[in-house]
């Protein structure tokens, strides 16, 4: 990362690019001609990731519902039995705490749900972390942001491409 800021011009470009990207973010259109485009890994998505989180019925006492789908890039076919790892800063623990981490498997229609403690704002935003890293498809780390910290659900869609 340090190579990104070796010169002032580079730094200015980076800052300008960040501001520009933030401004243009709302205008982007998903690719459609070549079928369903794969979900790119988000910046900061892998932060405080712990590999190999156990598959659990729920994380902690629950109360907040993380839902999502996992589909294949291109034809959009649902992918059953895929392992998705989830972690967040919640009312019961920090992102780094092992007990804040858990994994679940998608059902026959490629859907997953995880009952987990309420996500609370941390590092400036109420956000969750999700990972697909089982190897059959390319690894994806997501960092979705809640539209309101009072939300009690968060929905996340994965589109994976073969590794």
């Amino acid at each position: 990362m340090s190579s990104l800021i070796q010169t002032r011009r580079r730094l200015l470009g980076l800052v300008g690019g960040t501001v520009g990207a933030a401004a243009l973010g709302g205008l982007s259109v998903p690719a459609s001609a070549a079928g369903l485009a794969p979900t790119p890994t988000m910046r900061g998505g892998a932060n405080n990731y712990r590999p190999g989180a156990p598959v659990v019925d729920r994380i902690g006492g629950g109360g907040f519902l993380m839902t999502g789908t996992v589909r294949r890039a291109g034809d959009g076919a649902p992918l059953p039995g895929q392992r998705i790892q989830i972690w967040a800063h919640t009312t019961e623990g920090h992102e780094r705490d092992p007990e804040s981490h858990g994994a679940t498997l998608t059902d026959d229609e490629g859907r997953f749900t995880m009952d987990m403690p309420q996500i609370v704002p941390a590092f400036g935003q109420a956000h969750g972390h999700l990972a697909y890293d089982s190897g059959d498809f390319q690894t994806v780390f997501l960092r979705p942001v809640m539209s309101s910290p009072r939300d009690t659900t968060l929905h996340v869609d994965f589109v994976l491409q073969p590794a």
């Binding site: 990362m1 340090s2 990104l4 800021i5 730094l11 980076l14 800052v15 960040t18 501001v19 933030a22 988000m42 910046r43 900061g44 590092f123 400036g124 935003q125 960092r143």
Partner: peptide
């Protein structure tokens, strides 16, 4: 590293 997802 100016690589955070958040503008702030």
């Amino acid at each position: 590293a100016f690589a955070a997802p958040t503008l702030f």
